Simulated assay, not measured.
Amino acid sequence: MDVRWLEDFLALAELKNFTRAAEFRNVSQAAFSRRIQSLEHWLGTPLVVKGAVPVRLTEAGEQFLDSARIAVDRLLDARASIRTSQFDVMSQVRIAMPNVLARSEFRRVLSIIERKHNSSFSVIVGTTNDVVARYLAGDADILFAHDCPAIPTHDTLDQHERLVIRRDLFQPYATRDEAKREAFGFPGTPRAPFPMVSYSQKAYFARLYEHVQERARAGGAALPHKISVQCDMSDVLKEVIAAGYGIGWLPESAVDDTADAQIAPIGGPEWALEVDICAFHPPKPSTPSIEAIWASLKRRAVPDGF
């Protein structure tokens, strides 16, 4: 029996939807369904009522739910305990952060954490969805990610401790080439939509852009566009924007000095969205070294998050 089957079952029981649960677990829906079926075969009984929308557990599934939670918690606690025991003087802290923040914020984070903690660090990077899933699965002690009051990074994170490390601004950028900027005709018209460099639909930043677009529509404006390039990675989109392929939204923190020489914000503040760069920590107590590091972050945190 694979512990991932239990984690899949718990996600399905909470979200009550195969598609959403598969996205949360970062697997295809087909693979997710096979893993649920494998767990049912291992137990010898169905756990989910077939065809029920939203998903509903069978009587056996309800009985098994608490046992699955306890088993996963104990396994994760045992793994954490074993990993902790591998270090004597040095205590490794597992940090998860998206690629875009790893490049712009990791050194800043290290400068906030007091060196007297004598800790080593293991850094998990990937897309926002990837690192959030890894953190929630227990693979990281502290998560750093963009977060916004209007569009939370993940619903489950509201149960975790949250600190605002600093503010950021999600706004549209275009090449500094004046001729191309003017030709884009931002913010576009139905007859002449502007070319857009966008994130794929599952990306967190794509959800932020959708909020900007909905806010514009509510205010009587619009953002007519046609997608020229689509990608999950902000660094890739940044290069495409600099090359003049279109306009794309980026967090201001992602625009370093090199990029700043090639791209610049376009449009007014109505197209921008304030976001936070946050740290998250599980609500249950952790090791003394991790708690000490969290205390250091708390001392430097921005007050009044949301």
Rank of each mutant, 00 (worst) to 15 (best):
L223E: 05
Q201T: 06
Y199H: 12
D235M: 07
E182T: 12
E214T: 03
V197T: 02
P187C: 14
A30G: 09
R162L: 10
D73R: 08
L110R: 13
S228K: 15
A206M: 09
A242L: 06
V125G: 03
V125S: 09
P193Y: 04
A102L: 06
M97S: 01
P283F: 03
K284C: 02
P195C: 13
V53S: 15
W42L: 14
H117M: 02
D73V: 00
E291R: 07
I151F: 08
V275L: 13
V100N: 06
A183I: 04
A102H: 08
C148G: 00
A264T: 08
R103I: 02
A150H: 08
I124K: 15
T156E: 11
K226R: 11
E274L: 02
E214R: 07
D168V: 07
A295C: 07
P251K: 11
V93L: 15
V109L: 15
V255T: 06
V53W: 08
V27R: 12
T45F: 09
S289T: 07
R34W: 00
P190S: 13
A254C: 03
D141E: 14
S228V: 15
C148F: 00
D260S: 15
L65I: 12
G220W: 01
V275E: 10
R94S: 13
H211S: 04
R167D: 11
S119V: 06
G126P: 02
R217Y: 04
S33D: 04
D260Y: 14
Q230I: 14
A203R: 01
Y245G: 02
K180S: 15
S228A: 15
F106A: 11
K238Y: 05
I36Y: 04
V229A: 03
E14C: 06
L163F: 06
F121K: 07
R299M: 13
P152Y: 05
H154M: 03
A179W: 03
A279M: 12
P224G: 05
P187R: 12
A22H: 01
P172A: 07
T19D: 13
E161Y: 11
R34Q: 04
A96V: 00
A221L: 12
G126S: 05
W294K: 01
P288R: 07
R69P: 07
E59R: 06
E291K: 02
P288F: 09
A102V: 03
A292C: 14
Y199I: 02
P190M: 13
F280C: 04
R207D: 02
L273Y: 11
Y245A: 09
E59A: 07
H160F: 07
T128Y: 00
G248I: 02
V72M: 01
P54M: 10
G246A: 09
A145R: 01
V240W: 08
I112S: 10
L163K: 09
R207T: 00
G61A: 03
V125E: 11
A22Q: 03
Q171A: 03
Q230A: 15
A264K: 10
T127V: 03
S91P: 12
V3L: 14
L169C: 13
S198I: 01
R191M: 10
A21I: 01
G248L: 06
H211C: 08
R35M: 05
W5Y: 10
I151A: 11
